[in-house]
């Protein structure tokens, strides 16, 4: 059921067959079909080209296409695996697969590491951590003094950087997350399990080509 393929859809740039994507991700074919409905909505919000542009991503996250945000930028860059400035359907599904409740925890830990490794040096550095804390403070109503921010960052580094070389490597990150499992809670989107309920239109659409 729900296995509809249309000629129009196949012409979309970067379109990949749901069966292929389902085989490579925690999603079922029906869930990939439902994600395609969401993808169409997001990718045609500003420029109707079937690709998610950075502005469309920001618009979806913040209802505002001009609101730049450190996290949105990093997530966009990680989803844009080909680094061609847009997110294609296959990239969208594979990346969201990491956020599926059934995705391997190791994948979530690795994705979070890449997310926080702002400058992609292979390490999370103290300055990057501070930058993220300052960014979230800027986004929220939480006001902390410079001293308090320094204390929080120092304390975190003291615990996570077990080798004491001023940077957190993937192994140290893994250990740190195992001590604080709640740190990867934001790497799971429970909603992905109900995606077919949220976007069921593909189930009833017919194969008829106009």
């Amino acid at each position: 059921m729900g296995c509809v393929s249309s000629k129009r859809r196949k012409q979309e740039p970067g379109y990949e067959e749901p069966t292929v994507l389902a085989a490579e991700t925690p999603f079922t074919v029906s869930e990939v079909e439902a994600l395609h409905e969401l993808f169409k909505k997001l990718s045609n919000a500003i420029i109707a080209d079937g690709l998610i542009h950075r502005e469309e991503f920001q618009l979806a996250l913040f209802r505002n296409r001009n609101r730049r945000n450190l996290f949105a930028d990093r997530i966009f860059d990680l989803f844009d695996v080909k680094r061609n400035g847009v997110i294609e359907f296959g990239e969208f599904v594979r990346s969201l697969g990491v956020f599926h409740p059934n995705a391997p925890v190791a994948d979530k830990i690795a994705f979070a590491f890449r997310l926080y490794d702002l400058r992609q040096t292979g390490f999370i550095e103290r300055e990057e951590l501070k930058e993220m804390v300052l960014a979230l403070l800027h986004e929220s109503d939480l006001a902390l003094s410079e001293d308090v921010v320094e204390t929080i960052v120092d304390k975190t580094f003291g615990e996570a950087d077990t080798q004491g070389d001023g940077k957190i490597d993937p192994e140290e990150w893994k250990e740190f997350v195992s001590k604080h499992p709640s740190l990867i809670k934001n790497m799971t989107l429970p909603y992905l399990k109900d995606i077919t309920l949220a976007f069921p239109s593909f189930v009833v659409r017919s194969e008829v080509d106009e």
Partner: peptide, 25 residues
């Protein structure tokens, strides 16, 4: 209290570091 939290905890709990809005209709 934020001071007693570790920095990653603060970040991961932040709404601005969440993809939830992608699914809002």
């Amino acid at each position: 209290k934020p001071v007693s939290m570790n920095a990653f905890e603060l970040i991961s709990r932040s709404q601005s570091f969440s993809l939830d809005n992608l699914f809002e209709k």
